[in-house]
Amino acid sequence: MTNPAIAAHALRKSYGDKTVLDGIDITVPEGTIFSLLGPNGAGKTTAVKILSTLISPDGGQARVAGHDLTTDPQAVRATIGVTGQFSAVDGLITGEENMLLMADLHHLPKAEGHRVTTELLERFDLVEAAKKPASTYSGGMKRRLDIAMTLVGDPRIIFLDEPTTGLDPRSRHTMWQIIRELVATGTTVFLTTQYLEEADELADRIAVLNNGKIAAEGTAEELKRLIPGGHVRLRFTDPIAYRSAALALTDITHDDETLSLQIPSDGTQNNLRFILDRLDTAGIEADELTVHTPDLDDVFFALTDGTGTPNQPKEAVR
């Protein structure tokens, strides 16, 4: 096995007496998309800032691209690209000048810098706006310029902190497409998001960050399995059928008002057949049958409910 792109162990960070990160472990294999998922204030940005050498942790170790964060930050910086949560473009100069500035700071030869700039501006649909001050760009354009600037040095590992927050649906889908293309060329992506849909859509592995700890970690599928909540729902119009169904089935929750029954189910064919057989045997016909599989939303809310204390065991799924 090759070295992971990012390997962090027991990272801690507090501000005053507020513990933001309370010992988190993160492993991101090369060439994959890892998503750190968490509500506002969970500590996602803090984690990105630490892993991208912007701030130092209070405790723990981390290696990025095999280089130690604290002893060799400059080597880490040489392999990463960072697009922070808030726009990191120079608003006073044009989009093109921003790109050329990055090229100069990556010490690209002049011609090469121009070539890369032209290519990226085209790829991110910024050619028309290239000569306008970046401060006049829309949110989506700023984001695209931001990412284009991050790509100038051809980084192996990219951090994207909430890349789609505040974007309209169209720009969000464009951004998703961009992120997928990045990984297709072997880049490792560390992505934070508040949106389950986004993590589900993009990430190979997801870690749910809550209250300074990783509440759960795994693939989207693994996380979904963590949460009970899959069920079959039967609805009736006839109260008699409703009552006999309630007698024929076990382990049910009923709702007398809507005449509906809820039976825990993992949604597999076998389980459904079992339920249907029971109903057939009792000669009952439901008016409506729906299958609910837990989605990441269920996972998210179960793990981060109200007070923010996870009600799931802390150990990660592997």
Binding site: S52, T53, L54, Q74, A75, R77, A78, I80, V82, G84, F86, S87, A88, V89, D90, G91, L105, H106, M149, G153
Partner: peptide, 13 residues
């Protein structure tokens, strides 16, 4: 206070 300085800080310059 601009984000670009944070960007500079994460670059190998």
């Amino acid at each position: 206070s601009e984000g670009i300085i944070a960007r500079f800080r994460t670059m190998a310059i």
